[in-house]
């Protein structure tokens, strides 16, 4: 059973790595989007391994279902793929700068992770969905309400931004 968990962890990690590399290096934005979706599915698998099936479900519902469609609309509405804005490879100076940024952040964080390891539990805690619902309705009620306000504001703001031009015409 433990071996199965390790094997699936490695498989999900490889999916995340491969999808992420496609997402950030692909010259076609539609391919980058497909890479992003496979990364999101890999992270959903990680959530399953962490014994949080509810989070895995939400990951697929919110990210793969909603955010991926929004990104695809962004590609479609700007015809970002047609002109090939990412078609020519990035200038070498920019790539070197990006690698330096990654090395700085990743170096510091992985140094902290590897030198000061936290001995966590072997087996993840299991929480029933009822407790999550109770938490949303009792302890973290304000955060729950605030996130709905934020979503409402973002949605109406987006509609307003996209509408303005049409009224002017």
């Amino acid at each position: 059973m433990e071996l199965m968990a390790k094997i699936s962890f490695v498989i999900y990690a490889l999916i995340i790595l491969g999808g992420g590399l496609v997402a950030v290096t692909s010259q076609s934005l539609v391919r980058a989007l497909v890479g992003l979706i496979s990364t999101l599915l890999g992270v959903a698998g990680m959530y399953m391994l962490l014994a949080t099936p509810f989070m895995a479900f939400m990951q697929i519902l919110i990210y793969v279902g909603a955010v991926a469609v929004i990104v695809f609309f962004a590609v479609m509405l700007t015809r970002a793929d047609e002109g090939g804005e990412e078609a020519d490879p990035a200038p070498i100076r920019q790539s070197l700068g990006s690698l330096a940024a990654v090395a700085a952040v990743g170096g510091v964080l992985s140094w902290v992770l590897l030198t000061k390891p936290v001995q966590g539990l072997k087996v993840p805690v299991e929480v029933a969905v009822e407790e999550l619902g109770k938490g949303l309705m009792e302890s973290y009620f304000v955060a729950f309400e605030l996130i709905s306000v934020i979503l409402l504001v973002a949605m109406s703001g987006a509609v307003l931004l996209a509408w303005e031009r049409r009224v002017k015409k």
């Binding site: 919110i62 909603a66 929004i70 962004a74 973002a154 703001g157 931004l161």
Partner: peptide, 12 residues
């Protein structure tokens, strides 16, 4: 939820 809101605004 914040990521979804952010993606919506960035789309606009």
């Amino acid at each position: 939820g914040l990521a979804a809101a952010e993606a919506t605004l960035v789309l606009a």
